[in-house]
Design a binder for these strands. Structure first.
Length: 420
DNA sequence: TCTGGGGTCCTAGGACCC
DNA sequence: TCTGGGGTCCTAGGACCC
């Protein structure tokens, strides 16, 4: 049996945790650059604010309804996520952290007479220990557990738990869930299924297996099995090492200045380097990507991208930056205003497996030691306390974040004060 | 003024090998 | 109508997730 524990409106709940006066107020959390809504409290959802709504389209609703607005504060959300996951880990033998706000719990060895009671225990423990509200769905497969979680939120809001204990309850849930709301069904597949007469998840279970296999590949076949109660998605108790790592941001302001693009590219490359070293990987290649603002069709549009292979797989920031800047110079074109630069490092392999080129003259060990010290300092003293020269100091491409809350749990200077 | 960022998996098709 | 057969590796593109 699987449980899916999902934090309710996670980012909004994190903000509310440190500002209890927001208890019944509508809260919206914005994406990077304060661009669009990525989390909403129930009250904000009730006002009709949709996921992904651009900030400038919400201004009226926000002002009229006294909505509390936040820039995203990933340091805070990441730390609270860790605390929630650690709490869950103490309650069950094994769990799979699926995303920043969700975990699958393995209940196969739990000896509860009624698993819904366990669900309530989980929910109350997290609420009590961390203060974040969660919902729990329990069912015989991952896909059904996801569905049960959603069903709990829709139909058993107060309890916040749904245990699909028998086929009758599973059927009830399958009948209720529309195809587009099934985990693994996006817009394209939802259209396909609707065109073929499926309205609900129940309808999908009645399609021929062969249809799922041929029209939706093995992904569809797995899904079909999962909906019919046959577990077909593996556990991933240990997070696998990443195969690609990407750092990209949109600019607060469009720019055609290559020196600003270079500064941004250097910084994003440095961020990729740090992530590589943290998982003890080296990259075989690096991709640089630039794009103009496609939301402005009246401006000339251009997207450029290039991949360069390293002489030797690397995670050394300086070396990576030199390739990134070389790539940027190749794809850069004058006469355009750029919105975004992205760096992806590809073909990641374990650090201890690299074969150095016979022409390699670098003292990799020494450089790496320096970088590891830099990483440590940056973690302790705050991001980018120490950096490479090409990263610049001005941050001319700075993002916008006008509604940022404190890093209450990770920075002693930003801790909550009870009284001044 | 203003529309996020970071990932994964699967398949088809081409290059290349013996 | 026929063009060998069987295999691997890589990449691009499309689908999905939070």
């Amino acid at each position: 049996m699987y449980a899916l524990v999902d934090c309710n409106n996670f980012y909004a709940s994190c903000e509310r945790l440190f500002q209890p006066k927001l208890a019944n107020r509508a809260i919206v959390v914005l994406s990077n650059n304060d661009g669009c809504a990525i989390a909403r409290s129930d009250e904000a959802k009730a006002l009709g604010i949709e996921m992904g709504t651009p900030a400038f389209l919400m201004e009226d609703i926000i002002n009229k309804n006294n909505v509390a607005v936040f820039s995203s504060n990933y340091t805070l959300y990441g730390d609270l996520s860790d605390r929630v996951m650690k709490t869950l880990a103490r309650l069950v033998p094994r769990l799979e952290v699926y995303s920043i706000d969700e975990s699958f719990l393995d209940l196969s060895d739990m000896h509860y007479t009624d698993l819904s009671k366990l669900g309530v225990d989980i929910k109350e423990t997290v609420r009590r220990n961390i203060g974040i509200p969660v919902s729990v769905g329990i069912a015989p497969t991952k896909t059904l557990a996801k569905m049960a979680n959603r069903y709990a939120k829709k139909k058993y809001k107060q309890l916040g738990v749904f245990y699909a204990a028998n086929q009758q309850l599973i059927d009830e849930m399958l009948d209720y869930t529309e195809v587009g709301d099934i985990w693994g069904i996006g817009r394209q597949y939802a259209n396909l299924l609707q065109r073929n007469g499926c309205k609900t998840a129940m309808d999908v279970t009645k399609l021929p297996e062969d249809f799922m296999r041929t029209k939706m590949t093995v992904v569809g076949q797995r899904l079909w099995n999962e909906l019919r109660g046959v577990p077909s998605i593996e556990w991933e108790f240990e997070p696998p090492a990443k195969k690609n790592i990407c750092t990209s941001r949109s600019f607060g302001k469009l720019t055609g200045d290559i020196s600003i693009l270079k500064e941004a590219a250097s910084n994003y490359t440095a961020a990729c380097g740090e992530k590589l070293r943290r998982q003890n990987s080296c990259a075989k290649a690096i991709n640089v990507y630039v794009t103009t603002n496609y939301h402005k069709p009246d401006l000339p549009q251009y997207t450029g991208s290039i991949s360069l292979e390293f002489e030797t797989p690397t995670n050394l920031t300086g070396e990576m930056i030199s390739y990134a800047l070389k790539g940027l110079e190749i794809i850069y074109k004058e006469g355009y205003l750029f919105k975004k630069v992205g760096i992806t490092v590809l073909g990641l392999i374990p650090e201890n497996q690299i074969q150095t080129s016979m022409f390699d003259v670098k003292d990799r060990k020494k450089e790496k030691d320096v970088l590891l010290s830099m990483d440590k300092i940056n973690r302790l003293m705050g991001k980018d306390s120490v950096r490479m020269a090409s990263q610049g100091f001005q941050r001319r491409y700075k993002l916008r974040a006008e509604h940022l809350s404190n890093k209450y749990t990770t920075n002693i200077n930003e801790i909550l004060k009870v009284k001044n």
